[in-house]
Design a protein around this nucleic acid. Structure first.
Length: 416
RNA sequence: GGUCGCGUAGCUCAAUGGGAGAGCGCCGGAUUGUAUAUCCGGGUGUUGCGGGUUCGAGUCCCGUCGCGACCGCCA
């Protein structure tokens, strides 16, 4: 890019690798210099926690706030009520109002840790598009907004085209989704003076729609900026760990397991992730990412510590690291391992080892636990298990037991 | 509302009324550095659900749910 940004925000975005595309790089740069710019990112309320895939965008908002912008986190309370039909697994009930509310509450926990909300000029706003979508009048909406959308053009969008090409049904509901999102941007501009929408590069089309709509209806010039779709260097989608999503809420994924996810980053991604997910100086990130061989493990520990500290606090990060050292370097057990606590009542006369693996989350089913034992991947206090029928009696639990599935996954079992 | 088609592993899909399978993913082991790559091992399943026919049903029949296509109603 020939143009050199003058604003701190765009400079950071460019330096750290956040920038995929921008509708008007220079125009946005000048707007950012001229004053406090409100910018938003939208989030669907389909799950009760955000996952790692969302983290990059939240980091963008964090940088945006640090460099003098006003972030807006827009919860899709209204659009989720309609339901995003693109994930059409058979018996997924449409989310009701209560479920959406509780999902939004769950997500707020994460935002509050990374972004400062309040009433000050650069304090962030938490909004919900139900605020303007719930009360929409259908005829008015069609007349004022619908007339600006060309169906011919909408049909040319890749998201729509691929569905039609495969002769899959596309409901009118889903067809309207992009219009509602464009309308969000318009309302945010009208109500809050929002000048910028950011999002993953898959949102480019939707963002541009919002910009066009706002130009036509309000004659305001606003901007869009997208971040690259994050994949690991071997081309796989990022964000899975041990078969589950990497949630950002501590009650859905413990800080220790979150820490492990980052600790296990591929060599080639370490430098990139340091720049995207930590706030260490760029030069430091480059230096750490360039380490080779076993030395780069130190960089991965720093990465894990920094990201975990941002999200769960420095204490949680330190505890996770201490446990990791204890478990992997000394072969012991740390306090921070996932722990299954059993009451004397639950335990009764004892419990089978298979049940313990299932209850502790190391195996998804009894069958899986038995297979694990048969393959020699299951260990009790670091001794390989051979007998799937092993029964643990209460007095064996006087001291906490350490269960292991494979080399990396461990859990403690103790009496409550 | 009617007619037809589809529903099998996490995903994409196979399987004359006769042994539930493949690729990818996933899990374990070796090698290693708690990473990649490589090698070895593991099929991970309520065949949407409920009945029936049959010695035997993923397969045939009835019902039901979900998805889709076409037709009708409306325009």
């Amino acid at each position: 890019m020939a143009y050199h940004p003058k604003s701190d925000f765009l400079r950071v975005m460019t330096e750290r690798g956040f920038l995929a595309d921008c509708t008007d790089y220079q125009g946005l740069d000048e707007a950012l210099i001229a004053g406090v710019v409100p910018a938003y990112i939208g989030y669907d309320a389909t799950a009760k926690s955000l996952h790692v895939g969302h983290l990059m965008n939240i980091m963008v908002l964090r940088w945006f706030q640090k460099t003098g912008g006003k972030p807006i986190t827009l919860m899709g309370g209204g659009t989720t009520k309609v339901g995003d039909p693109s994930f059409r697994s058979d018996e997924r009930p449409l989310l009701d109002e209560a479920a959406i509310e509780s999902n939004i509450e769950g997500m707020k926990q994460v935002f509050a840790k990374l972004i400062t909300y309040g009433d000050g000029p650069t304090d962030a706003l938490m909004l919900n598009n139900a605020e303007w979508l719930d009360g929409l009048n259908y005829l008015e909406f069609l007349r004022d907004i619908g007339r600006h959308f060309s169906v011919n053009r909408m049909l040319s969008f890749e998201s729509v085209k691929s569905r039609l090409d495969r002769e899959q049904s596309l409901s009118f509901l889903e067809f309207n989704y992009m219009i509602l999102q464009a309308y969000d941007f318009l309302e945010l501009n009208r109500r809050y003076g929002c000048l910028l929408q950011m999002g993953g590069s898959d949102q480019w089309g939707n963002i541009v729609n919002g910009i066009d709509l706002t130009r036509r209806v309000l004659e305001n010039e606003i901007y869009g900026l997208t971040t690259p779709l994050l994949t690991t260097s071997d081309g796989r989608k990022m964000g899975k760990s041990q078969g589950g999503a990497v949630w950002l809420n501590g009650d859905m994924l413990s800080p220790y397991e979150f820490w492990q996810f980052w600790r296990n980053t591929t060599d080639a991604d370490t430098g990139k992730f340091l720049k995207l997910f930590t706030e260490l100086p760029v030069e430091e990130c480059d230096r750490l990412g360039a380490l080779e061989g076993s030395e780069i493990n130190a960089a991965k520990v720093i990465l894990a510590n920094e990201v975990t500290a941002l999200l769960h606090g420095a204490d949680a990060a330190a505890a996770a690291e201490a446990t990791a050292r204890e478990v992997f370097e000394k072969g012991g057990a740390g306090d921070d391992l996932p722990t299954l606590e059993l009451s004397t009542d639950e335990l009764g006369d004892g419990i089978s080892i298979v049940q313990l693996f299932v209850r502790s989350g190391l195996a998804g089913s009894g069958k899986e636990a038995k297979r694990l034992i048969a393959e020699g991947g299951a260990r009790l206090n670091d001794t390989e298990l051979s007998d799937a029928g092993l029964f643990i009696t209460p007095d064996q639990l006087a001291e906490p037991l350490k269960l292991s599935a494979g080399k990396k996954r461990h859990a403690l079992v103790k009496l409550a």
